[in-house]
Structure formats: C-alpha cells, structure tokens
C-alpha cells in the first residue's frame, strides 16, 4: 500500500480557486446541518399529524395516514430525491414549472429538504402511532367524557404523553436524518458528501478527506444525541420514572 499522506491538505487552496479545502468542508457542514434540521421540523409536524390520524378510529382519516406512510416508506430515498427534483416540476402548471426550474432560489436545498422531511415523516408517523397506542385507552375516554373535543384530546392529553414515550426512537430518527441528508449529493446539494467527493477528486487525498468528513458526521450524530437528551430531561414530567 503506497499512499502519500498529506495532512496539510486542508489548509491548501483548491485548484483554480482562492478558498481552501477546509472552506469547502465547512460550507458542506453548513448545508448538511441546515438540510437535516429543516427536514426534521417538517418531519416532526407531518409525522405527528399522520401518526395521530391513524389512531383516530375514523376509516377515511386512518386510511389517509396509512397511505401516507406506505407511500414514503416503500420507495428508496434516492429515488424520491430524483422524483422531487426531475419529475415534480414537470407536473406543475406551466408558469410555476418554469419558475421552479429556472428561478427558484436554492433549488437543490428546497427540494432535498422537502424530500428528506417527507421521507422521515413516514417513519415518525409509525412511532407516534405506537406511542399513542401504548397509552391506556381510558385516557382518551376520560378526556372525551370531560367534554374535550377530539382535537383538544389529542393536543392536550394524548400527544404530549405519546411524544414523551417515544423520545428514544425519535432520538435515533433524528440522528438518521443527518445521515440520510448525505443522499442529497445526488441532486447537487453541496453538503458534506458532495464536498467530500469534490475534494477527493480535486486534491487526490481521499483518505484524509473521507476521515475528516466521517469525523464531522460523527460530530453531528453526537450533537443530535445530546440535544435530544437535553430535550428529554427538560420535558420530563416531574415524578415520573425516566
């Protein structure tokens, strides 16, 4: 194995540019964080909604929730990225389609974030459903008997408790979101994986490049894990085991 190590590569300038390779990776980390965090917000909102719909006992609503989950869970994320990037703009009305294809700002970012958010929402929906189903049935009945509407029952009683139950699987899903954002390189979002491939080709120092990027992904995972632990501690109901 003859490989020329060069750990100074990160401080060197890229070919035909004034920035350094470290700048590339920093920009990549920024896009990865932005994409994963925004996607997570979309996923939490829509996933909670879809998961709750499945437990309402109304056949139409439950069916809509189930369709949502099956649709986004059974197609590979990469294929979904291509669908949102290449196919969806073609289905829009002509004017909007042209705008999306030519003028939409940060097109790759918007597409990748939306796609990752919807993909993750299907997984969160399953966890929310499991969380709600784990609650004693009497809770819903008591809430309704007290005169709460179904909406109030979900927002004040069922969801606050269910979300606390599923915080462990939610943590690993949050960490997955960072990992999954790497797929966005395929539609040209300049996140970490995209920058890693670009730096490897440009500098031909593949091992140093991938080691650094792998470390940055590790960092994201650890931070995500700690952040969720903090939320878990903050939201714990006093007096409950945790």
């Amino acid at each position: 194995m003859n490989y020329h190590w060069n750990w100074h590569i990160f401080a060197q300038q890229v070919q035909g540019g004034s920035e350094t390779y470290a700048d590339w990776l920093a920009a990549g980390l920024g896009w990865t964080l932005a994409c994963a965090l925004c996607a997570w917000l979309i996923a939490l909102a829509l996933g909670t909604l879809a998961g709750a719909l499945r437990t309402t006992g109304n056949r139409v609503l439950a069916g809509a929730g189930a369709t949502w989950v099956e649709l986004f869970r059974n197609v590979p994320l990469l294929v979904q990225m291509f669908l949102w990037f290449f196919v969806v703009p073609e289905l829009l009305p002509r004017e909007l389609s042209l705008w999306v294809k030519q003028d939409m700002p940060a097109k790759e970012f918007v597409t990748a974030t939306l796609c990752l958010g919807l993909f993750t929402s299907a997984r969160i929906a399953e966890q929310v459903r499991a969380g709600i189903q784990a609650l004693p049935r009497g809770q819903r009945e008591a809430a309704l008997a007290l005169g709460l509407t179904t909406l109030q029952c979900y927002s004040h009683i069922l969801l606050p408790r269910a979300l606390r139950i599923i915080i462990a699987p939610l943590t690993s899903e949050f960490m997955n979101t960072f990992k999954n954002s790497s797929v966005a390189f395929a539609i040209g979002l300049m996140e970490l994986t995209f920058q890693a491939r670009q730096m490897q080709e440009d500098s031909e120092q593949g091992i140093e490049t991938y080691l650094a990027v792998t470390l940055l992904y590790f960092l994201c995972a650890i931070i995500a894990n700690r952040a969720m632990a903090l939320i878990e501690a903050r939201t714990r109901v006093p007096g409950t085991p945790g």
Partner: peptide, 11 residues
Amino acid sequence: RAIPLVMVILW
C-alpha cells in the same frame, strides 16, 4: 451505524 451508508460506500 454512525456513518452514512453513502460515505461507507465511498470509503
């Protein structure tokens, strides 16, 4: 389990 699969493939 902590690294994205794409990175492992590239590695």
